[in-house]
C-alpha cells in the first residue's frame, strides 16, 4: 500500500515537473516578443528572425526569460500553479466572499452541468434497467432489440447531440432538458448491455435450485437475478455516468450556452482564455472522479451488506 502510494506520488510529481518544463518552450515566443518590446536583449533579435526557429532552441538561447514564460496572462500552456490559482479563485475564494453561485463561479457552472448529468443519468439508468428486464424475460425483445443495443456501443451516437439541442430549441424546450436527454441516451445503452449480462449471470445450478423450490418468475427475479446482477450493473453505471457527463458537456457546445462547464470551455477557446479552459477541464475531471468515486462507494457498501466479500 505504502509502496504504491510513493510510486503514484513520484509519477504525479514527474508529470507536474514535465508540465513546468514544457511550459517554457510552449510560451517562449510571446515571452521573448514581450521582453524585447520592454528593452531586454534577446538572441536572435527581431520577431521575424525567431519565427522559424524551434521553441526549444529559443528557450536554450534565452534562459533569462524563462521566468516570464510561467506568469503570462494568456499562455499557450498555463502552469499548474496558474490553473490551481484560477480554480481556487473561481470556487473556494468565491465561497468565502459569499458569492458561491455568481456567474463567474465554477461551482455555478459545475452545478449546471452536474444537474443535467444526474437527471439524464437517472432517466437513462431507469429506462435501461427496465429494457434489460424486458429483454431477459421476453425472447422476442431479446432477439430484436439486443443486437441493436450492442451495435449502438460501436457508433458515435454523441454526433446526435447538436441536433437534439437545436430541434428541441425550435419547439421551445431549452435549459436542462435537452442536455439531460443527451446524457440519458448516452448512459442508456451501457446500462442495458451490462444489466442484461448481470441478470443472466446466475448459472443453471442456481436457477435449478429455485425451480426445485417451486419459485415463481418474480421470486426468481427479486431473490436471485437482481442481487446477482448488481456487480455488473455497477460496472456499467460507472461507464454510464462518465458518458453522461461528456454528453452534458458536449450538449452545451452547439447553442453557445452561457452556463455550464462546456460553455466555459467554448468561451475560453473563443477568447483565447487558456487558463479558463484548463480550469474548466480540471473542474470536469474532478467532477467525473467524484461521481465515479461515489458510485464505487455505494457499490462497496451495498455489496458488503449483501455479504459479498470484495
Amino acid at each position: 500500500m505504502m509502496r504504491t502510494f510513493w510510486a503514484v506520488l513520484v509519477v504525479v510529481a514527474a508529470i507536474v515537473l514535465f508540465w513546468y518544463a514544457a511550459a517554457v518552450p510552449m510560451n517562449i515566443k510571446t515571452a521573448l516578443t514581450q521582453a524585447e518590446r520592454e528593452g531586454a536583449v534577446i538572441s536572435p533579435e527581431g520577431a521575424a528572425a525567431r519565427r522559424d526557429m524551434s521553441a526549444i532552441a529559443l528557450s536554450l538561447a534565452n534562459p533569462a526569460q524563462w521566468g516570464d514564460t510561467l506568469v503570462q496572462d494568456k499562455p499557450r500552456l498555463p502552469t499548474p500553479d496558474q490553473v490551481a490559482v484560477e480554480l481556487w479563485q473561481t470556487s473556494g475564494a468565491m465561497v468565502l466572499k459569499g458569492r458561491a453561485f455568481s456567474k463567474r463561479s465554477l461551482l455555478f457552472h459545475g452545478w449546471v452541468t452536474l444537474s443535467a448529468t444526474l437527471l439524464g443519468f437517472g432517466i437513462g439508468t431507469v429506462l435501461g434497467i427496465l429494457l434489460a428486464v424486458g429483454i431477459v424475460h421476453s425472447r422476442v425483445m431479446d432477439m430484436s432489440v439486443m443486437p441493436w443495443a450492442i451495435v449502438s456501443q460501436t457508433i458515435p451516437i454523441i454526433a446526435l447531440a447538436p441536433m437534439i439541442i437545436v430541434v428541441l430549441y425550435s419547439v421551445g424546450v431549452q435549459g436542462i432538458i435537452p442536455k439531460a436527454i443527451i446524457s440519458a441516451y448516452l448512459s442508456f445503452f451501457p446500462v442495458v448491455v451490462g444489466m442484461v449480462k448481470g441478470l443472466r449471470s446466475p448459472d443453471s445450478m442456481q436457477l435449478d435450485l429455485l425451480r426445485t423450490y417451486n419459485a415463481s418468475t418474480s421470486q426468481g427475479f427479486w431473490k436471485l437475478r437482481l442481487p446477482s446482477s448488481l456487480p455488473y450493473l455497477f460496472a456499467s453505471l460507472k461507464v454510464a455516468i462518465a458518458a453522461s457527463l461528456v454528453g452534458a458537456i458536449v450538449g452545451e457546445l452547439p447553442t453557445g450556452a452561457v452556463s455550464g462547464l462546456g460553455a466555459r470551455l467554448l468561451a475560453g477557446s473563443y477568447y483565447g482564455q487558456t487558463i479558463q479552459i484548463w480550469s474548466a477541464l480540471f473542474a470536469a475531471a474532478i467532477l467525473a472522479a467524484l461521481l465515479v468515486g461515489i458510485l464505487g462507494m455505494i457499490e462497496r457498501l451495498l455489496l458488503r451488506r449483501m455479504g459479498v466479500v470484495a
Partner: peptide
C-alpha cells in the same frame, strides 16, 4: 505501481474536454 492508478483515473475522465486546447496548439 505508479502509472497504472494514474492511467485508470485518467481513463474515466471527460478527455474530449482537451479538444479546445489541442485545436489551439
Amino acid at each position: 505501481r505508479g502509472l497504472l492508478p494514474v492511467g485508470n483515473f485518467v481513463a474515466a475522465l471527460p478527455i474530449v474536454g482537451t479538444a479546445p486546447i489541442l485545436v489551439m496548439w
